[in-house]
Design a protein around this nucleic acid. Sequence first.
DNA 1: AATGAATGAGGGTTCATTCAT
DNA 2: TATGAATGAACCCTCATTCAT
Lengths: 226, 226, 226, 226
Amino acid sequence: MATDAKTTRRNNILEKALAIFAKKTFQETTIAEISKAARVSEATVYEYFKTKEELLFAIPEKITREAIEEFEKVLPYLTGAESRVRAIVQAYLTLYHNNPEYSSLVMLQLKTNRRFLQTRAYKLIQSIAGRLLDCINDGITEGVFKKNTDPYLIRAMLLGTIEHLCIRWHLFGRPSNLADYVDPIMDLTFNGMRTRPAGKNLSIHLHLPRDVTLTHEMLSPEDNHS
Amino acid sequence: MATDAKTTRRNNILEKALAIFAKKTFQETTIAEISKAARVSEATVYEYFKTKEELLFAIPEKITREAIEEFEKVLPYLTGAESRVRAIVQAYLTLYHNNPEYSSLVMLQLKTNRRFLQTRAYKLIQSIAGRLLDCINDGITEGVFKKNTDPYLIRAMLLGTIEHLCIRWHLFGRPSNLADYVDPIMDLTFNGMRTRPAGKNLSIHLHLPRDVTLTHEMLSPEDNHS
Amino acid sequence: MATDAKTTRRNNILEKALAIFAKKTFQETTIAEISKAARVSEATVYEYFKTKEELLFAIPEKITREAIEEFEKVLPYLTGAESRVRAIVQAYLTLYHNNPEYSSLVMLQLKTNRRFLQTRAYKLIQSIAGRLLDCINDGITEGVFKKNTDPYLIRAMLLGTIEHLCIRWHLFGRPSNLADYVDPIMDLTFNGMRTRPAGKNLSIHLHLPRDVTLTHEMLSPEDNHS
Amino acid sequence: MATDAKTTRRNNILEKALAIFAKKTFQETTIAEISKAARVSEATVYEYFKTKEELLFAIPEKITREAIEEFEKVLPYLTGAESRVRAIVQAYLTLYHNNPEYSSLVMLQLKTNRRFLQTRAYKLIQSIAGRLLDCINDGITEGVFKKNTDPYLIRAMLLGTIEHLCIRWHLFGRPSNLADYVDPIMDLTFNGMRTRPAGKNLSIHLHLPRDVTLTHEMLSPEDNHS
DNA sequence: AATGAATGAGGGTTCATTCAT
DNA sequence: TATGAATGAACCCTCATTCAT
């Protein structure tokens, strides 16, 4: 069996703890409150988690691990740096949006907690960020992303945007749907905010004579980067 | 006089408090430690600040106000949405870089503090963010920024990137110089990361049947934003 | 059989408990640690001993009982109060020296524990002290020990010395060998520390007038202790 | 003024703490109880003493220091190793007898506490024990104590006897008066418990004829030690 | 205005002990 | 019989805050 009684109870505590940690500060949250919510004694909480902080850090570990596992299944199907980057951004936004308590905890409390950086959970989170960087570098190598840009900056921009939106979502309730931002973010990041007189979103309407059929061979664009 | 004895003492407390709050958590910092650093009694701290939290919130108020005053002097000289946006980004990065204790406090503790949002200091910070939004909207109106982009998202991207870099700077010590990132950020935000296959250097080789002559009318490019 | 599986397990727990109690305080020692050392569950410890304190008190009982049994075999062969007293002192010092964990426990923790005085183990220890008192009284009756000395004080001196040495041995590691102290203690206790200017070899030269003849009746020595 | 308000309050806490520590174990004693007895808040106790253990150790420090100061005034007036040794023994017994709570604490809890050995209070106690050793050595040098005895053993015997009696006094209420034991202890230690067939306390009753007057010249004892 | 002194309020953590299996 | 699991009950200690001087 995947979940025995012990695991169930552990998960129960984690779940209730998440709900409370997400609403209050770590400091404001008491073990008493958590144990009460989980309908166990305070001592029982300490049976499963050595300290209050360990309990705190155990929460993102579980969720992050599951999210990564899930995501790793999808990634192999995606080809091309752009779609992979997009997929990662989508994964972040979806995860945060679908798990508001989790994202609140991560964004408002863990991300700036120095001790969290020493955590297994953080290592997991880092691994996805590493994946993102890999994809960006792949894109540069492949030529779909500009050669002379700092991949770290690109990542910072993507993650920074996501985080900023997520934090505002939690603090102000806006925007209401994070997941809606995948494409806008991708577009902005890929193409920039500046209009292009001869710019990128160009579409060419070819009004071809009726008797001309456009075949595939007719159209062979070539990359010639600056 | 602008600074009498009381103001001096108050500023002294603020200064010492900043230094300590920047190193430790709000919770970890004690009034005892601050009063010791400021060489006054704990009770004296309470003469100037009603609560520990009020003291915390009083710190960014002073620095932010000064930074804004400074910046407001410069802004009128800048014309054009792009240069104004750039100026604001630069102002942020410079302020954060030159005041590490301040930026550490803001990034790691205040930005995620719900009660901070009710603060005069926060209103000030918000005013700059409002200015940034104005500039972006101006740029859209002026036509230098794309019409169909969300100005809020653009701002989120700019601020998010700045914050992300700043946080990493504090937590990991990298990058070493925030101010260096003004231009890279502007370039990336303005132009995007994507090379433009259909971009400036794009060439489409149309292998049209011989009897088809390409006329000007056949080709009518249009902006069609996603 | 004297030792079935249960007894074996019980003795195992006792043994491990002794080792730990001897190193730490009773309060510092946890059942968890003992059970771990004995490779049984905590609940099992409670199968054999009702409380932690009962476990503590069960330890000296076993060792003391065995030591007494051993000693009782020897005592009948000893004649004369002096040699019997000496034998008891030697028995104490040898027992303490050969069982450092036991003596540490007794000296540093049990001897001053009021509840230990209600214990069967204590009764056993007392019985030897009683024997010592008997021997001292015998010696007084026999005339080898001074009549007007307090036998309780003599015993207090012997036991106090032994205990003092034993405690110092445990706390400071000196002296290194308790058993070496049997004879010095006996000598000091029997003969005292004082040199005797008017000592054993005293001779009094009585220059009596010539006409006085010393008769036997004139000379009747009596003990008169101070 | 020798005792300002702060010292008074501190002493009050010490006094109440002593009363309670003497009745219960250190572990059994709670700060709550002490603070209640001293009519201050628990927090106030911690204003004066960093930890419960520091409070415990502060008690003997005060009493021991005062006792030593007192004793040091007397010692210079005493000449001769014997009288000085006797004085120290008397000082011990008197101190313990007059301060039963203190002696209970020292005998039943502190003497066997390993951390107490690192204490200033212990250093003070040690200093008296050092004085005792000095006196014993002086006596050996002066020839009033036997040359070939171990001065450490003599001290162990004196202190061990005192401690043993004191512990029994606390645990069993006997003997009722410790101070009565000064002379018996001294006699026993000096002269030993053994009767001396040719021994020292011999007195010879000379029933001389009436007409014989014993003159000083008649009696000329000579030292001739073995 | 400045502070020494006092404290109320609170929470994390530890374990001996129990009990159902 | 053995034990995994659960918990009740305690307590030390910290500090922000107050107030009389």
